[in-house]
């Protein structure tokens, strides 16, 4: 195998991984601490991307776009939390899935009403629009490198927040035993709101930085939501560390599978079978990973919950 290609694919895997981490960090906290399955998490991602697209179109400023995305997600998140999720905390998971799935449909339709069904255009900021030669002859898009940097920086910041601050301590405590935290006199409602806001902001950030890469269109949250669910299941629900490791793992497996599996299969089975099976198998790889993890460690790689 060509080492240059492997290196490029590793970077691609890393980039997909950090994007997934931004989504998964919020979702796993909400799930782990609030016990809530929020399928509308993808809608927050979409809200971030649309706020980005609209702001960049109006002001031409990428940073203003990111700020707008965070504000939009805070607004959407607050509305969702107050209007719908608050009623769902004590219901069982099936009700939560149904209700938040309904929210997905509402938000997709709302976005379509406001911006129309066609995809929106977001430019890459001029400073990041070129390619960077990481090694001689290996150009890599500068924007994707920036995405990796932002993702790693956010992961570092989250680590400090969770490991070093009082809020982080409460979050860890909430994830491992919610009832006990409430019994110790912590305002669990306030903690819920903080966690939900944090998750919404991370999802919006993911949406905003994905906007120049991906097509900003209604329903853009669902494909990434599915990957995110795989990540939090593999990583262990409620664990930020698990989300980080699993996001990178899934990012690598998905990228490497797509890049090299069909070619490897061709060596083994011959071109006809490989052409038919290869793409399907490559796209199934992450689900196979999830199945294996569930079989071996049903609680995920880094389980947070103890009771």
């Amino acid at each position: 195998m060509d080492p240059v290609l492997v290196l490029t694919q590793a970077l691609n895997g890393l980039q997909l991984g950090v994007m997934l981490f931004l989504m998964a960090a919020g979702l796993t906290l909400v799930f782990g601490i609030m016990g809530l399955i929020n399928l509308a998490h993808g809608a927050l991602y979409m809200a971030g991307a649309y706020a980005m697209a609209a702001t960049v179109a109006a002001t031409d400023s990428f940073l203003a776009g990111i700020a707008a995305a965070l504000l939009a997600a805070a607004a959407v998140g607050a509305v969702v939390e107050m209007a719908a999720l608050r009623r769902l905390y004590d219901r069982d998971h099936l009700d939560q899935v149904l209700a938040t799935f309904g929210l997905i449909l509402c938000f997709n339709e709302l976005v379509r009403l406001i911006w129309g069904p066609a995809a929106l255009f977001v430019t890459v900021p001029p400073a990041l629009s070129g390619t960077v030669e990481i090694f001689a002859g290996v150009p890599y898009p500068a924007y994707r490198l920036a995405v990796i940097a932002v993702g790693i920086a956010v992961a570092g910041g989250l680590y400090l927040l969770i490991a070093r601050t009082r809020l982080g301590m409460l979050i860890r405590a909430g994830a491992s035993n919610r009832t006990m935290v409430a019994a110790l006199g912590v305002d669990i409602r306030l903690l819920y709101t903080a966690v939900f806001a944090l998750g919404a902001a991370l999802a919006a950030l993911a949406g905003a930085i994905a906007a120049p890469l991906l097509s900003v269109e209604p329903g853009m949250g669902e494909p990434v939501l599915i990957l995110t669910l795989v990540v939090i299941v593999v990583g262990g629900i409620g664990s930020i560390r698990g989300a980080f490791v699993a996001a990178l793992l899934i990012g690598f497996i998905d990228t490497m599978g797509r890049a090299f599996l069909p070619a490897m299969l061709r060596e083994v089975t011959g071109p006809a079978t490989a052409a038919a099976v290869g793409p399907a198998l490559a796209s199934m790889l992450i689900y196979l990973t999830m199945a294996v993890v569930l079989a071996v460690r049903p609680q995920g790689l880094f389980a947070a919950r103890t009771g």
Binding site: L5, G13, L214, S215, M256, A259
Partner: peptide
């Protein structure tokens, strides 16, 4: 090369690297 990607796959970085190679 003849590459078939998953329907509605959002990111093509892995395939683009193959094209370059």
């Amino acid at each position: 090369g003849e590459v078939y990607t998953t329907v509605n796959q959002p990111d093509y970085s892995a395939e683009l690297a193959q094209i370059r190679a």
